[in-house]
Each structure stands twice: as C-alpha cells, then as structure tokens.
Design a protein around this nucleic acid. Structure first.
Lengths: 141, 141
DNA sequence: TGGAGATTTGGAATGATTCTAAGCCTTGGC
DNA sequence: GCCAAGGCTTAGAATCATTCCAAATCTCCA
C-alpha cells in the first residue's frame, strides 16, 4: 500500500506530521475548503498547527502538483483547495462555494472538447496548454 | 447611435463623468486590466478620479452585468475586468495575465459543448447554470 | 548519530478590497 | 431652469487573505 510518506517523497516533499494531517484532512472532504476552514478542521487533531503552516503546506502541495488551488470565484475572498487533481468540472455558486459535477457528467462534458482544437490553439497562440479549466456558473433561482 | 449614457441608463446606472471615463477606458483595451492598472490609465484624463471610485464603479458595472470580473487566476493577486461580456474563452498565463482566444476558435470551442448536457446537469443538480466559464491554462515552455 | 538544510511558528508586514462619513452631483418633478 | 432626494465620489481608515520574517525545531541522509 501507498503511504502519505510515499506520496510526499515521490513529489519531492519531506514528510512531517503537519503535512500528513493536512493532506489527510483535505483528502477526505469534497467541500474544497479554504485555508482557514482546513485550519479549523485539524484543530482538534493538532491544536498547535499554525495558520502559517497551513498556507505554507498548501503552497508546497500546489507547487508539487499534489493538490490544486482554486481561486475565489467571487474575485475577492479566500481561495479554496482541492485534493482531487484529475480533470473535472466544477459548479460554482453565487456565494462562492465550489462543488464537483458528478463524475459521469464531468467526463462526458470534457470528452466533448476536441484535442484537435486545443492543438490548433497551441499552434496559433504559440503557448502550451496544460489543461482546460471548466466551471459551470450557477445563478440563484 | 447609442451613447454611454444610454447604456448606463438601460442598466439602471446613473451617468457620471467618472463612469464614462472608466467604461471607455475598459472598452478600448483587450488586456483585462486590474483596478489599479485602470486607475493609472485614466489618470491623465481625470487626475482626481480616486481608486475607491474605480472599485465602486467596477463593482456597479459588474453587478449590472455591463462588464465581467475575472478573479485572479493565481489565487492571490488582484482581479481583472473585461468589458466584453459575450461568452468567450480565456487563455491564462503562469504570471497571471489573461488573454482572449481568437473569436473563431473561441466560438468553435464553445459550440462543442452540448446544451443538452448542460440541461441534464441542471436537472441533476437542481441549479440553474448561467454560463460555462472556460479557461485554457497555459504552462511555460 | 550528527548536521545541513528544510519546515514550523507567531507575529509583523503587505496587498487588495471594502467601509465610512462627508460633500457633491445627477436626476426627475415642478 | 430650479430644487430636493438620493445616488455617487472621495480620502482615509479598516478589514481580510496571504506572505514574509527570523528563530526554534525537525527530517533525512551519510
């Protein structure tokens, strides 16, 4: 079996108690928490874990490609973090929350986008496109 | 012909010198400026126009649907503004800039997305989807 | 086991945005 | 055209999220 230590090592990250705690906490949730929310959620397990460490750690994870940072959809407000790095579609709410689109729909949605068109875009723009980010922006009803 | 005054009125906004200046400045650029950049660009035309007014005005325009607010793609950093509200695809750079995908490609890209699938998503999630936001995330090469 | 260097920490600092309260301007009614 | 009512603008203060700092601690490899 693969331990968190293994995962961290493979991504060039040292294994610390704080990192294990935070990664585990992010892995189990589907809510795309903010740094503060995550800080709150690990408080009972490790009361000394500082908010600065939460930020440092999430930055390190993001840089290593272990997690994804989701900018606030509102423009202001805290960003959110997602331990699920496989390409998937997000649903964004008017109050700034971010939800996952069910996997089957997400996949069907992304499958529609032709690789050929992406390739043409790369040719025309001269830039390499790493991924296509899709959000379904919901409105109150 | 349609004046800015007409446009503002139709959107329920009063017409002021500052609003005309800012809307005109945003209309002519393709660079998706930040509030500060916009403030700089209008300084020669109206030196007294305050940064607070830039923020207030951009908020009012955004709320009225006259322009679009683009959250920083980096997660931290200032957001950007776009006077072009028609659905189009953005190309985002690693340094936080946002570029438009050429219109023909943008259109071809969005045409691929089936309305049917969006409708199914609305049914399943119970939320109304206002628009589909697509960014092509580029990587340095 | 030792030590180089990465990580953690609280607090200070920064950057972007929002708030506040006072004065000014726009608008609609006369 | 003139006047209120209320929206808009403004500088500066306040807030919020994030980053920086420097000292103490921990991790990992030899």
């Amino acid at each position: 079996m693969t331990t968190y230590r293994d995962i961290f090592t493979r991504h060039g990250l040292r294994c610390t108690r704080q990192r294990e705690t935070l990664y585990a906490a992010l892995k189990v949730t589907k809510s795309h928490p903010t740094a503060e929310e995550l800080h709150d959620r690990v408080r009972d397990q490790d009361a000394g874990l500082s908010l600065a460490t939460v930020y440092n750690t999430l930055d390190a994870f993001t840089a290593a490609g272990l997690i994804r940072r989701l900018p606030s959809t509102l423009g202001s407000g805290p960003c959110r973090y997602d331990a699920d790095t496989h390409e998937h579609v997000h649903l964004t709410t008017p109050d700034g929350r971010i939800m996952d689109v069910p996997d089957d729909l997400s996949e069907r949605f992304l499958d529609q986008l032709s690789d050929e068109l992406v390739a043409e875009l790369e040719r025309r723009t001269g830039m390499r496109i790493g991924r296509v980010s899709v959000q379904l922006v919901t409105e109150s009803r």
